[in-house]
Each structure stands twice: as structure tokens, then as C-alpha cells.
């Protein structure tokens, strides 16, 4: 059970209609080569809001990760971008082409790998690639076959004999083959073993380095964070965070987690730490100068962000806090992105 302690220093987004910065950028940016632009994209399924007005600009030359828990709206956004789901409102353009009608013109500029993996089991791997690459450039099938062979896929076999991971690789090969500037990949690494995932991410990284625009989604941060230069975190159909991987890494480096003997102690410590983070004065023992921020409690663990990378002054103060029992464990600078997002945005990444 994860609970967050109320904290005067918490900076979780209020959960309004997306991030104003993203909206401004989307409004300002004209459609252009390699750009994915979504302006105010909204979609409801009955009473459920799948996408609140969603604004984003994704630029070429880097991998952008679209991250969030299951049902957060990632796949709906991707489907709206390529015209598979019609947005109730908003505008989309990809590679300078506006999304109109059923999105055929946009889909010519982009490859899309769906997250849900259901293939035609009666087709062979090669036939399936030909099916997926219909209306693509003539050389695409050859390239896809080469990629599939690199993965070791038996293209002469019927797809019904493929494992889940092999099917995923087949779809990936088809998504990577067409000569287009933009690739949108939904849950592309899901179900792959670590070595295949690594191979796949290397290819995605190389694509981005070659100047292509890559938008990939995952509900598992640890699977894709190593290739993403930028991370968009989505929850309940809204963009709750848009940060560079470097900024996230810096925050991660300053993050500290302390395990206590019980949740009660963790809460007591959180209250002290929150007080320590107050603007003036603060807790006389833990000290305001460390500017402890983003304090949360998860079970018997208290997590927070320090003002600097050096934890030693804070640890010395913590040792002198006599009303708190000795911590069971202290972790610093090693938090996963998953934990970080859970702490900062109050949602589970996996």
C-alpha cells in the first residue's frame, strides 16, 4: 500500500488540463519535417475521458518516451496521432502533414506498431511482413526481411508457431523498414527477453541518431528509459510531466529513501522532513539548509529530495535526531525512474 504524506513542499501537478508549457509550445510550433504536433487532442469513450486536451510536440533526432500506467491514455493518444481513433477535438500533424479524414495521408509519413499483438496466424512470417508493408516503398519488404533475419525469425514458418516475443519482433521489423521520418511504437518492448529488448532498443536508438522521430510508449519505465532522451509521463489522459532524461537523472541523484521500523515512524519522520523543508526556520535538528522537498511515505519508507548531491550533511543531522529510531536502510541516488515517478506524480509506473 502506497500512501503519500501531506507535504507543504510536494510539487505534484494539480491534475488540470495538461501542462501549460506543452500547450504553448504546441500552439507556437508550425508543422514541419519530422515533427509530431498534437494540439488540444481530446477523446472520450462514453463517460470516460481517455484524453483530456492533450498538447505535445515531439521533435526528430531523439527517442521520446510516452510513459504511464495501464489505461493512462498512451495508446489512445498514439491511435489518435495516426488516425486510427478519431479525436473528438484537436489537431494533429505529423511530418508536416495534417491529420484529416481517416488519416491515410498521415500514415504514409509514419510507421505505427500497435501495442496489442494479434497477428494472422495462418500467414507465414514473410507473408505477414508483406501484409504489414502494403502501400510502402518497394524496398521496405527487403529491409524488413533483413531485420527479421537479424532477429533470427523463421520467415517461412506460419506465425501461429511464433512465440509472443517473436511476433513482437516481426511487427517491429515491419515498423522499422519503411523509409519514413517518424515512427510511433506502442509497447514495442513488451514481452521481450532482456537480450532481445536490448537489441531492439539499440536499433531504436540508431534510428533516432539517424535523425528520425521516435515516439515509443511503455508502461514499464525500466524497459525503455535507457534510450529515451525525453520522457512524457501520462496519467488519466493528461500529460503530467515532460522532462529530459538528464533532468530526471539529476533528480534521481538527489533522491533519498529511508526505511524505518514502521509506517508510523515513517510518517513521523516525513512530518519532520516536511518541516525541515519549510521556507524559514524549519526543523532545528534536521535543518532547513538542506531544503528537503518532495517528501512522501510509502509503507515504512520515507522518500524525499535533497538540495544537493552530497548527502553527508543531512545524514549527520539525521543521526542527531534523537526522537527518531535508527533507520533500517538508507538509499541515495539510486532510485529507479519508476520509484521517482511514483513519488513525484503519485502514480505507479508499472
Amino acid at each position: 500500500m502506497t500512501t503519500a504524506a501531506p507535504s507543504p513542499t510536494a510539487d505534484r501537478p494539480a491534475g488540470g488540463a495538461g501542462k501549460p508549457g506543452a500547450r504553448d509550445e504546441a500552439q507556437r510550433t508550425p508543422p514541419g519535417p519530422g515533427l509530431i504536433i498534437a494540439r488540444g487532442v481530446t477523446r472520450r469513450f462514453g463517460a470516460k475521458v481517455a484524453l483530456a486536451p492533450f498538447d505535445v510536440v515531439v521533435r526528430p533526432g531523439a527517442v521520446t518516451g510516452l510513459l504511464g500506467p495501464n489505461g493512462s491514455g498512451k495508446s489512445t493518444l498514439m491511435r489518435c496521432l495516426v488516425g486510427l481513433v478519431r479525436a473528438d477535438a484537436g489537431e494533429v500533424s505529423i511530418d508536416g502533414v495534417p491529420l484529416v479524414g481517416d488519416g491515410t495521408a498521415v500514415r504514409r509519413q509514419v510507421t505505427y506498431a500497435p501495442g496489442e499483438l494479434h497477428l494472422y496466424s495462418e500467414l507465414t512470417g514473410r507473408e505477414h511482413l508483406a501484409f504489414l508493408l502494403r502501400a510502402r516503398d518497394r524496398a521496405a519488404l527487403g529491409r524488413a526481411e533483413a531485420i527479421a533475419r537479424d532477429f533470427g525469425l523463421p520467415l517461412e514458418q506460419r506465425v501461429r508457431a511464433y512465440s509472443h516475443g517473436m511476433k513482437r519482433q516481426l511487427v517491429f521489423a515491419a515498423a522499422l523498414a519503411p523509409d519514413v521520418k517518424v515512427r510511433i511504437l506502442d509497447e514495442i518492448s513488451e514481452g521481450l527477453d532482456p537480450s532481445k529488448r536490448s537489441e531492439l532498443l539499440d536499433r531504436i536508438d540508431a534510428e533516432a541518431r539517424a535523425g528520425r522521430t521516435i515516439l515509443l510508449s511503455s508502461h514499464h519505465l525500466g524497459e525503455v528509459d535507457r534510450v529515451c532522451a525525453r520522457l512524457l509521463f501520462v496519467n488519466a489522459g493528461r500529460l503530467v510531466a515532460d522532462e529530459s532524461a538528464a533532468a530526471i537523472a539529476l533528480r534521481s541523484a538527489r533522491r533519498m529513501a529511508v526505511d524505518w521500523s514502521s509506517e508510523e515512524v515513517a510518517r513521523r519522520a516525513a512530518a519532520r522532513l516536511a518541516d525541515a523543508g519549510a521556507a524559514t526556520g524549519g526543523d532545528p535538528v534536521l535543518g532547513a539548509e538542506h531544503c528537503v522537498a518532495e517528501v512522501y511515505v510509502h509503507g515504512a519508507r520515507t522518500s524525499f529530495t535533497l538540495a544537493s548531491d552530497d548527502p553527508r550533511p543531512f545524514l549527520a543531522r539525521l543521526e542527531s535526531a534523537r526522537d527518531l529510531p535508527p533507520p533500517r536502510a538508507i538509499e541515495h541516488g539510486r532510485m529507479s525512474l519508476n520509484d521517482l515517478y511514483r513519488d513525484l506524480y503519485g502514480v505507479e509506473g508499472t
Binding site: 504514409r108 505505427y112 502494403r134
Partner: peptide, 16 residues
């Protein structure tokens, strides 16, 4: 029913 519709429609071919 088979779950292949997204794959079928995801190509650059118009629905019509």
C-alpha cells in the same frame, strides 16, 4: 473478433 483490426487499419491504405 480476432483483434487484428488495428493491424489491418494501421497501414497507409484508406478505410474506404
Amino acid at each position: 473478433h480476432r483483434g487484428t483490426m488495428e493491424l489491418w487499419l494501421g497501414r497507409p491504405v484508406s478505410r474506404a
